[in-house]
């Protein structure tokens, strides 16, 4: 009986230690030292990372990062925030280091964890030069004074501290394709696994929302509840590398059907890449393990 306070104390200590160990970890103060941002290069990173696909509105311009798009999930509905250059309602008032911390470490300016609806789980593998170029480009885009709307997330998922253990469990800096044998494969891996964050939709998630690495790109239910996001491993995607590259350029499949749904926004991005980059993505998709769906 006298043991209960002890057990309770141990539990509180464990929780405290867990919270402390998984507290938000922004970038080190010197993380961006000796990097010179190049806004023009950043425009390509902006396209490759697909920023506009989520952060523009249905009706606004392709460069107005006003937010407001809604993303249904089993944990609630996430609402994309305003990340335009507006100093009050957007992120124009954030320093380069604060923005870089959000992008690669999922830590907000106020020091709290960001939800992984924002794919820092992929961007954490981005080159820091690309990140500063991207930030420089974003600062050239127009400001929107639309306030960011709150996420519609219920208990317990509204506890941001719980994202600490989540990150410890599910965020990895390892490449899924462990060896990239050619330069093209290495570039393709970077575009797909880091900037393009393709797996965020094309790989199924476990009960806690972590990507299932052994089902890499094997397709997943659409979180919106509508249809399925297709398997794009070689087990299902029989197109040639050229077919894949053409699709990413024009949106046309080899039999001249055209992309629909969310892929239309993706192709708006991939159409801005070079032919070599699209070929690299295609090479990567042919190199990942074939995973058949049951």
């Amino acid at each position: 009986m006298a043991r209960w306070p002890l057990i309770l104390g141990a539990m509180v200590a464990a929780l405290g230690a867990g919270w402390y160990l998984t507290r938000p970890a922004p970038l080190a103060d010197n993380a961006l030292d000796r990097l010179t941002p190049d806004a023009a290069r950043g425009a390509v990173i902006f396209a490759a990372a697909g920023c506009a696909s989520c952060h523009t509105s249905e009706t606004g311009a392709d460069t107005l990062l006003t937010g407001g798009k809604r993303f249904a999930s089993p944990f609630g509905t996430f609402v994309a925030p305003n990340i335009s250059s507006d100093p009050v309602h957007g992120v124009g008032g954030w320093s380069d280091l604060e923005l870089a911390s959000a992008i690669v470490a999922g830590v907000s300016q106020d020091g709290s964890h960001l939800y992984p609806a924002f794919p820092y789980t992929s961007y954490n593998k981005a080159d820091m030069q690309d990140v500063v170029d991207l930030i420089a480009h974003m600062r050239t885009l127009p400001a929107s004074d639309a306030p960011s709307l709150p996420h519609e997330i219920g208990f317990p998922f509204n506890l941001r501290a719980a994202l600490g253990p989540w990150k410890a469990l599910f965020v990895s800096e390892q490449w899924v394709l462990a060896t990239a044998e050619t330069d093209a494969l290495e570039r393709g891996r970077y575009l797909v696994e880091a900037l393009g964050h393709c797996a965020e939709c094309h790989t199924p998630r476990g009960a806690l929302g972590g990507l299932q690495g052994d089902q890499w790109m094997a397709g997943a239910p659409n979180p919106s509840g509508e249809g399925r996001i297709p398997n794009i491993t070689p087990a299902a995607l029989q197109w040639s590398e050229r077919d894949i590259a053409e699709y990413l350029k024009s949106g046309f499949t080899p039999d001249f059907d055209s992309a629909g749904g969310e892929m239309v926004a993706v192709i708006k991005n991939t159409s801005q890449l070079t032919d070599a980059d699209r070929a690299a993505i295609a090479a990567y998709l042919k190199a990942i393990p074939a995973i058949a769906n049951p």
């Binding site: 249809g227 949106g251 749904g261």
Partner: peptide
């Protein structure tokens, strides 16, 4: 083609 399929065609 894409513009219409984006809004009006399901996967």
């Amino acid at each position: 083609c894409s513009s219409c399929h984006e809004s009006y065609r399901a996967p």
